[in-house]
Design a protein around this nucleic acid. Structure first.
Lengths: 204, 204
DNA sequence: CACAAAAACAGAATTGACTCAATTTTAGAA
DNA sequence: TTCTAAAATTGAGTCAATTCTGTTTTTGTG
C-alpha cells in the first residue's frame, strides 16, 4: 500500500525535527526562521506546514519526547518508592526537574508554555495539557501507592493532593525557566520546603 | 518645563489604552490590529511603538489595572479576616477570582500569561512577575494575620505556605482560562477542595 | 520674537509566519 | 508498461507586527 511514501514521510518528519531542534538550540525559538529550518531539512516551507500546523507544533513534538521520557523514568519510583513520604515525593519530583533541561533549553520551555496557554486548542496546546495531566496522574498514583504502603493517611483526598503538589511544582518550574540565572538545586530546595508542610500533614 | 507636552502625552496614552481595550474585547487580542488601534486612538502606528515596546505591553497596561484593583480589594480581607482559616482563605481567593473577568476576557488573560512567560524581561513580563509576587505577599500577610489571631499554628512556615497556596490557585486559574467553558463556581469549588487539606494541617 | 536642540510623530519599508494555486510524485489498476 | 487519481511538494504571495528615517512640534534661550 505505501512503502516508499511512508518511508519518505517518516524521513521528512525526522529531518524537520532534527533541523528544528538544532536551530532552536543555536538561534533560539524566535531566532529560528521557518525558511532556515526548511533549508536545513531539505524541504520547502510549504512542506513543513503540511507536516505541522504551525511553528509551535514543531516545538511541541520535541517537548513531547522530553516529557514522555520523564514519565517513563517516574514509573520506577511509583512502583518502588522510598519508604518515607518526604523522600518519595522528592525523588519523583527530582526526576522531573533533573531531566527537564536535557533536550530543552529554558527558552524553549518558555515558548512551549506560552504557546500552550496562548493556543490551548491547537494540537500542541492539547498535547501539552495531556502531558500535564499525565504528570499529575503519576503523582496521584504515588500517593495512592504510599497510602497502600501505610505511609500516608487513608482519609487524605488523594486526587486533590496530587493536583496540589503538581500545580505547585509546575508553577515553581515556570518561575524557574523565566529566570535564566535560577539553578536547579535552588528550585528543588524551595519545593522541598513547601512540600514539608504537606508531608507533615499527610504522614501517618 | 513641560505643560503641553506632558498633557498631550498623557492624553495619547489614555486614548491608546481605551482604543486597545475596546478592540481587544470586541475583536480579541489577535484580531485587534495595531493599525486599527492607531486609527481609533487617532495616532500613527509609529507613535504607538513610541509609547509601548510591543503589542503585549499595551495589554500589560490593562492587566496591571485589573490586578491592582484586586490587590486593593484584598487588603480589606487581610485587615479583617473571617474568624476561620478555611473561610478566610476562601474569601481572599474568592475576591481574586470573582474580579478576574471584570475587565479582561479569558482570551486576554491567556495572551497576557503567555507573553509574561515568553518575554519575562520585557516591561510587561517584569510587571506581571511583580504582580504575582504582590498577590503571593498578600496571601502570606493573611497567614501571618491568622497566626497573630491564634487561628493558625505558630510553627507553620508562613512564607512557604503562602507561596504554595498562591501557586496552586494560579495554576488552577491558568487551566480555567484555557478552557472557555469552565465556570468560576467550579474553579472555586476545586480550589476549596485542595485547600481543605492544608487547612486541616495548619489550623490550631 | 526668532532659533537651535530635543522630543515626538508619521507612515513607508522590512520581516517572518503562514497560505494557496500550480506542479510533481506515487500508487494502483488496466 | 501506461495511465489516472490521489497525495504531497513547492515557492511566490499575503498579512500584520515591528523598525526606520525623514519631518514636524515643543521647549528653552538669547
Amino acid at each position: 500500500m505505501s512503502g516508499l511514501r511512508a518511508r519518505q514521510k517518516a524521513d521528512r518528519h525526522r529531518r524537520i525535527i532534527e533541523a528544528a531542534a538544532a536551530l532552536f538550540r543555536d538561534a533560539g525559538y524566535e531566532g529560528a526562521k521557518i525558511e532556515t529550518i526548511a533549508a536545513q531539512a531539505e524541504v520547502s516551507v510549504g512542506t513543513i506546514y503540511n507536516y505541522y500546523q504551525n511553528k509551535g507544533d514543531i516545538l511541541g513534538a520535541i517537548v513531547s519526547m522530553e516529557v514522555n521520557e520523564v514519565l517513563n523514568a517516574g514509573r520506577g519510583v511509583v512502583a518502588n518508592p522510598p519508604a518515607n513520604v518526604g523522600d518519595a515525593l522528592d525523588t519523583l519530583l527530582g526526576i522531573y526537574i533533573e531531566h527537564s533541561l536535557h533536550y530543552l533549553s529554558k527558552e524553549m520551555w518558555r515558548q512551549a508554555m506560552a504557546i500552550s496557554t496562548q493556543l490551548p486548542d491547537s494540537p500542541f496546546g492539547q498535547a501539552y495539557t495531556a502531558l500535564d495531566r499525565a504528570l499529575t496522574e503519576q503523582i496521584r498514583a504515588l500517593i495512592v501507592r504510599l497510602q497502600a504502603l501505610g505511609l500516608v493517611r487513608r482519609d487524605i483526598d488523594g486526587p486533590a493532593l496530587g493536583e496540589l503538589i503538581f500545580n505547585n511544582m509546575n508553577m515553581m518550574f515556570i518561575e524557574f525557566v523565566k529566570r535564566e540565572e535560577a539553578r536547579i538545586a535552588e528550585l528543588r530546595t524551595a519545593i522541598r520546603r513547601q512540600n514539608r508542610i504537606l508531608v507533615a500533614a499527610i504522614g501517618v
